[in-house]
């Protein structure tokens, strides 16, 4: 929309609204950061301020030395890493043929992926839980990796397909003429061009694995196998919760996610293409 025509007053109002919204969306994160710095003797306060008096990193030290935080972190990192790897490789190949090729079952496949989104979580978790129990995969990272990469897959495939749709196919045609086979054309020509979408897909898979709670709670029953969400929820549920410690953990979990998110945010506007439902 042409802007120079916005009057001064209108621009003022717009900035005003946006600033209020920004404060609202940033405040909780800042607040938890503030809480994590509180010294142990003043956890309960009614102040709305951010940085407490006598700020200290005590809670962080406590968290790392007195709780299994690092162990949970390691579990979460392992699960997230493999979920992203599996998710990206499956979604980039499947999305490609859904975007480019006509084959029997294409429409059905796309519709099926959309329908899987309607499954209530319990519908897959319960049978999978019973299965994992039978295969003795309870308290095993492998079980979680399989669950996460697959449940995120349908959306990732749609997302990749939507992006491939925006890349002209004349590029591959040229590559095929130059003697590359179909897979090389995909791998060497199209995939590099689709990197924004790959980044977004990777981000989604990462966020799924990094923040999933309900499945992890059921599958990981052994404290040393907890992922961060389960561990943290347990921590928050304790009767005498150490709020500063809990907040310190939140900050440490939040930071990598925030950092990843913000560093790829420039891809989000163009890279987020759910694609037309029509396909």
């Amino acid at each position: 929309m042409a802007l120079n025509r916005d009057s001064k007053f209108k621009r003022f109002i717009i900035h005003f609204i946006l600033i209020i919204m920004v404060i609202l969306s940033v405040y909780p994160a800042l607040r938890v950061f503030g809480t994590s710095l509180r010294p142990g003797d003043m956890l309960h306060t009614t102040s709305l301020g951010i940085i407490p008096e006598g700020a200290t990193f005590e809670a962080y030290v406590n968290l790392i030395t007195n709780t299994p935080f690092l162990r949970w972190l390691l579990n979460s990192l392992i699960v997230s890493f493999f979920t992203v790897m599996v998710g990206i490789s499956l979604a980039s190949t499947a999305g490609y043929v859904f975007s480019r090729k006509k084959f029997p079952g294409r429409r059905a496949g796309l519709t099926f992926f959309l329908i899987t989104q309607m499954f209530p979580a319990t519908m897959l978790v319960l049978p999978m839980f019973l299965l994992l129990a039978r295969l003795d995969l309870i308290n095993n990272n492998l079980g979680l990796i399989i669950m996460y990469s697959t449940t995120a897959l349908p959306l990732c495939v749609w997302q990749m397909k939507g992006y491939y749709d925006t890349i002209p196919d004349s590029l591959e045609e040229a590559a095929l003429v130059d003697g590359l086979n179909q897979f090389q054309a995909f791998y060497k020509i199209v995939l590099p061009l689709a990197s924004p979408a790959l980044v977004i897909t990777g981000l989604f898979s990462f966020m799924t694995a990094w923040s999933e709670f309900m499945v992890a709670r059921v599958v990981m029953t052994n404290e040393s196998m907890y992922t961060l969400p389960v561990g943290l929820f347990q921590m928050a549920g304790n009767f005498n919760t150490q709020w500063s410690q809990f907040s310190a953990a939140s900050v440490l979990i939040m930071l990598p996610a925030l950092f990843l998110f913000l560093s790829v945010s420039k891809y989000l506007v163009g890279g987020l293409t759910l694609g037309g439902v029509k396909g």
């Binding site: 909780p28 994160a29 938890v32 923040s211 709670f213 969400p229 929820f233 939140s250 998110f261």
Partner: peptide, 10 residues
């Protein structure tokens, strides 16, 4: 960008 469960607990 913040994991959902943390937001909810906050």
């Amino acid at each position: 960008a913040i994991p959902q469960y943390i937001v909810i607990l906050i």
